[in-house]
Lab assay of single mutants.
Amino acid sequence: MADQLTEEQIAEFKEAFSLFDKDGDGTITTKELGTVMRSLGQNPTEAELQDMINEVDADGNGTIDFPEFLTMMARKMKDTDSEEEIREAFRVFDKDGNGYISAAELRHVMTNLGEKLTDEEVDEMIREADIDGDGQVNYEEFVQMMTAK
Protein backbone atom coordinates (compact mmCIF):
# COMPACT_ATOMS: atom_id res chain seq x y z
CA MET A 1 0.00 0.00 0.00
CA ALA A 2 2.84 2.39 0.86
CA ASP A 3 4.21 1.79 -2.64
CA GLN A 4 1.41 3.97 -4.01
CA LEU A 5 2.88 7.05 -2.31
CA THR A 6 4.86 9.66 -4.24
CA GLU A 7 8.42 10.56 -3.20
CA GLU A 8 7.10 13.94 -2.10
CA GLN A 9 4.49 12.31 0.14
CA ILE A 10 7.10 9.99 1.63
CA ALA A 11 9.35 12.98 2.36
CA GLU A 12 6.44 14.80 4.05
CA PHE A 13 5.61 11.73 6.12
CA LYS A 14 9.28 11.38 7.11
CA GLU A 15 9.11 14.92 8.46
CA ALA A 16 5.85 14.19 10.30
CA PHE A 17 7.37 10.98 11.70
CA SER A 18 10.32 12.89 13.12
CA LEU A 19 7.92 15.29 14.88
CA PHE A 20 6.46 12.28 16.72
CA ASP A 21 9.80 10.52 17.25
CA LYS A 22 10.96 12.99 19.92
CA ASP A 23 14.12 11.11 20.92
CA GLY A 24 15.07 10.34 17.31
CA ASP A 25 15.48 6.59 17.84
CA GLY A 26 13.46 5.68 14.74
CA THR A 27 10.35 4.50 16.58
CA ILE A 28 7.24 6.15 18.01
CA THR A 29 6.21 5.03 21.51
CA THR A 30 2.81 5.53 23.18
CA LYS A 31 4.45 8.27 25.26
CA GLU A 32 5.64 10.14 22.14
CA LEU A 33 2.28 9.68 20.43
CA GLY A 34 0.56 11.06 23.53
CA THR A 35 2.84 14.11 23.65
CA VAL A 36 2.03 15.07 20.07
CA MET A 37 -1.70 14.45 20.43
CA ARG A 38 -1.85 16.54 23.61
CA SER A 39 0.02 19.36 21.88
CA LEU A 40 -2.81 19.28 19.31
CA GLY A 41 -5.41 19.65 22.04
CA GLN A 42 -6.45 15.98 22.17
CA ASN A 43 -6.51 14.04 25.42
CA PRO A 44 -6.14 10.32 24.64
CA THR A 45 -6.09 7.75 27.44
CA GLU A 46 -3.18 5.31 27.78
CA ALA A 47 -5.48 2.56 26.44
CA GLU A 48 -6.45 4.64 23.39
CA LEU A 49 -2.79 5.36 22.65
CA GLN A 50 -2.00 1.64 22.96
CA ASP A 51 -4.87 0.80 20.57
CA MET A 52 -3.60 3.35 18.05
CA ILE A 53 -0.13 1.84 18.17
CA ASN A 54 -1.43 -1.75 18.03
CA GLU A 55 -3.47 -0.94 14.93
CA VAL A 56 -0.33 -0.27 12.89
CA ASP A 57 2.35 -2.16 14.82
CA ALA A 58 2.88 -4.92 12.25
CA ASP A 59 5.81 -6.61 14.02
CA GLY A 60 4.13 -6.43 17.44
CA ASN A 61 7.04 -4.80 19.26
CA GLY A 62 4.87 -2.10 20.86
CA THR A 63 6.21 0.83 18.86
CA ILE A 64 5.72 2.25 15.36
CA ASP A 65 8.68 2.35 12.99
CA PHE A 66 8.77 4.38 9.78
CA PRO A 67 7.53 1.62 7.41
CA GLU A 68 4.59 0.99 9.77
CA PHE A 69 3.94 4.73 9.91
CA LEU A 70 3.92 4.90 6.09
CA THR A 71 1.42 2.04 5.89
CA MET A 72 -0.81 3.83 8.39
CA MET A 73 -0.61 7.11 6.44
CA ALA A 74 -1.29 5.37 3.12
CA ARG A 75 -4.31 3.68 4.68
CA LYS A 76 -5.57 7.00 6.04
CA MET A 77 -5.15 8.64 2.65
CA LYS A 78 -7.08 5.88 0.97
CA ASP A 79 -10.01 6.64 3.26
CA THR A 80 -9.36 10.23 2.17
CA ASP A 81 -9.99 12.69 4.90
CA SER A 82 -13.62 12.70 5.78
CA GLU A 83 -15.26 16.07 6.06
CA GLU A 84 -15.44 15.66 9.84
CA GLU A 85 -11.68 15.02 10.17
CA ILE A 86 -10.93 18.12 8.11
CA ARG A 87 -13.36 20.22 10.17
CA GLU A 88 -11.75 18.88 13.36
CA ALA A 89 -8.27 19.78 12.08
CA PHE A 90 -9.50 23.27 11.14
CA ARG A 91 -10.79 23.74 14.70
CA VAL A 92 -7.37 22.79 16.12
CA PHE A 93 -5.77 25.63 14.12
CA ASP A 94 -8.59 28.17 14.51
CA LYS A 95 -7.88 28.84 18.20
CA ASP A 96 -10.27 31.78 18.65
CA GLY A 97 -13.04 30.09 16.67
CA ASN A 98 -13.62 33.05 14.34
CA GLY A 99 -13.63 30.87 11.22
CA TYR A 100 -10.18 31.94 10.04
CA ILE A 101 -6.65 30.66 10.62
CA SER A 102 -4.30 33.59 11.15
CA ALA A 103 -0.52 33.50 10.84
CA ALA A 104 -0.32 33.69 14.66
CA GLU A 105 -2.63 30.68 15.08
CA LEU A 106 -0.69 28.67 12.51
CA ARG A 107 2.61 29.55 14.20
CA HIS A 108 1.16 28.53 17.61
CA VAL A 109 0.11 25.05 16.43
CA MET A 110 3.34 24.45 14.51
CA THR A 111 5.40 25.50 17.56
CA ASN A 112 3.39 23.10 19.74
CA LEU A 113 4.32 20.37 17.28
CA GLY A 114 7.98 21.25 17.75
CA GLU A 115 8.28 22.94 14.34
CA LYS A 116 10.35 26.09 14.71
CA LEU A 117 9.28 28.19 11.74
CA THR A 118 10.45 31.68 10.81
CA ASP A 119 7.82 34.38 10.32
CA GLU A 120 8.57 34.18 6.59
CA GLU A 121 7.87 30.44 6.52
CA VAL A 122 4.56 30.89 8.35
CA ASP A 123 3.56 33.75 6.03
CA GLU A 124 4.49 31.59 3.04
CA MET A 125 2.27 28.74 4.29
CA ILE A 126 -0.63 31.17 4.72
CA ARG A 127 -0.01 32.66 1.25
CA GLU A 128 -0.03 29.22 -0.38
CA ALA A 129 -3.45 28.40 1.07
CA ASP A 130 -4.95 31.91 0.99
CA ILE A 131 -6.98 31.89 -2.23
CA ASP A 132 -8.88 35.16 -1.70
CA GLY A 133 -5.77 37.04 -0.55
CA ASP A 134 -7.15 38.35 2.76
CA GLY A 135 -4.06 37.22 4.68
CA GLN A 136 -5.75 34.37 6.54
CA VAL A 137 -7.14 30.95 5.73
CA ASN A 138 -10.90 30.33 5.86
CA TYR A 139 -12.52 26.89 6.02
CA GLU A 140 -13.03 26.56 2.24
CA GLU A 141 -9.37 27.42 1.60
CA PHE A 142 -8.33 24.94 4.29
CA VAL A 143 -10.41 22.18 2.65
CA GLN A 144 -8.83 22.98 -0.74
CA MET A 145 -5.36 22.78 0.78
CA MET A 146 -6.07 19.53 2.65
CA THR A 147 -7.64 17.77 -0.33
CA ALA A 148 -5.24 19.05 -3.02
CA LYS A 149 -3.58 16.11 -4.71
Rank of each mutant, 00 (worst) to 15 (best):
M52Q: 01
D132M: 05
M73L: 10
G135Y: 06
S39R: 12
T147F: 04
S18I: 02
T35M: 02
L49H: 15
F20H: 05
I10G: 03
V109E: 01
L113W: 01
K78Q: 13
T80C: 04
D21F: 15
S18N: 15
N43M: 08
T147P: 12
G135E: 11
I64P: 15
P44W: 08
F93V: 11
K149D: 04
E46M: 15
I86Q: 04
E46A: 10
E88W: 14
Y139W: 10
Y100V: 04
T6S: 14
I131Y: 11
L117T: 02
D57G: 12
T35D: 04
K76E: 13
L49G: 13
R91A: 06
Y139V: 01
Q9D: 06
L19E: 07
Q136L: 11
V56K: 15
N61M: 03
V56S: 05
Q9A: 00
A129T: 08
T147E: 08
M72N: 13
S82D: 00
I131G: 06
S102D: 08
T30A: 13
D65W: 13
G26H: 03
D57M: 07
A129I: 00
F13S: 11
Q144V: 07
D94K: 00
Q4V: 06
M37H: 07
M52D: 15
D123R: 11
N43E: 04
D59Q: 09
D25E: 08
N54Q: 05
R38Y: 00
E46G: 12
G62P: 01
T35E: 05
F13E: 06
F66D: 01
T6W: 05
E141Y: 02
E68G: 12
F20D: 06
Q144E: 15
P67G: 03
V143T: 00
T27E: 05
G133T: 07
M1H: 07
H108W: 09
L19N: 07
E15L: 14
R87Y: 12
A104G: 12
I131R: 13
K149W: 08
E120Q: 02
M146L: 09
Y100H: 13
D96M: 09
D81Q: 03
G60A: 02
F17M: 00
V92I: 12
E8G: 12
M125I: 10
L49Q: 02
A16E: 02
D132I: 00
M52E: 06
R87T: 06
M145T: 12
D23M: 06
F90W: 15
I28L: 11
I126K: 00
D57R: 15
L113Q: 01
E68N: 10
D94S: 00
E15F: 01
R38P: 06
T30G: 06
G34P: 05
E46H: 06
T27N: 13
E83V: 13
T35R: 09
A16V: 12
E121A: 03
F17I: 11
D65F: 05
T80W: 04
I131L: 12
Q50Y: 15
Q9W: 15
M125E: 03
M72H: 07
I126E: 02
E83R: 00
A129F: 01
E141F: 00
M72Y: 08
Q9F: 15
A16R: 04
F20Q: 10
F142G: 01
D25C: 14
E55F: 01
E68V: 05
P67H: 10
T80E: 10
R87V: 15
E84F: 09
N43S: 14
P44H: 10
D57Q: 08
D123P: 09
V137N: 07
T45Y: 02
A16I: 14
G62Y: 01
G60E: 00
A58D: 10
R107V: 04
D57T: 09
F66P: 01
R127Y: 03
G34T: 05
G24V: 12
L117E: 06
A103T: 13
E8Y: 08
D119Y: 12
M1D: 09
N138S: 14
L5S: 14
F69W: 03
E46C: 01
A148R: 06
V137S: 06
S102V: 02
K78L: 01
E115H: 12
Q144S: 14
L5N: 02
M1T: 09
N43F: 15
D119E: 14
S39H: 09
D65C: 15
A148C: 05
I53F: 12
T29P: 12
M52N: 15
F13V: 14
E7V: 11
Y100Q: 15
D79G: 12
K78G: 11
D119M: 08
Q4M: 06
I101K: 00
E128A: 14
M1L: 10
E124H: 05
F142H: 06
A74F: 02
R91H: 07
E32R: 01
D119F: 09
D51V: 02
K78T: 10
G114L: 06
M77D: 09
L33H: 07
R127G: 11
F90C: 05
K22H: 03
G60W: 07
E48A: 03
K14T: 08
K76N: 07
E84N: 12
G26N: 02
M73H: 10
T30R: 15
T111P: 07
D94R: 01
F66Y: 12
L5W: 03
N43H: 14
Q144N: 03
A129M: 09
D130S: 09
I53L: 15
M37C: 06
D94V: 06
G34N: 04
E115I: 01
R107T: 00
D94T: 03
E141I: 05
L5Y: 00
I10V: 11
K22F: 06
L70M: 12
M77Y: 09
T35I: 14
E84G: 13
R127V: 05
N54A: 00
G60D: 14
V143I: 12
E55I: 05
R107H: 12
K116R: 13
F69I: 04
K14V: 01
M145N: 15
M1K: 08
I53P: 12
S102E: 06
L40D: 05
D51F: 15
I10L: 12
E48R: 06
Q144Y: 08
E84V: 13
E124I: 10
N61E: 05
L106Q: 03
R87F: 13
E48V: 10
P67T: 12
G24M: 10
T45F: 14
H108P: 09
D132A: 10
T27G: 12
Q42I: 06
D96C: 15
E120C: 12
A148D: 06
T71F: 02
D130P: 01
M146Q: 09
E124D: 07
T63C: 03
L106N: 06
M72P: 07
G114R: 05
R107N: 00
Q4T: 04
T80S: 11
I101S: 03
F66W: 02
F66M: 02
D94G: 10
T35L: 04
L117V: 04
I10N: 13
T71C: 05
Q144T: 06
I10S: 11
K31G: 10
T27A: 13
K14P: 01
D96V: 09
K95Y: 03
S39M: 10
D134G: 12
Y139G: 00
F93A: 06
D59A: 13
F90P: 02
V122G: 12
G114T: 04
Q9C: 12
K14R: 10
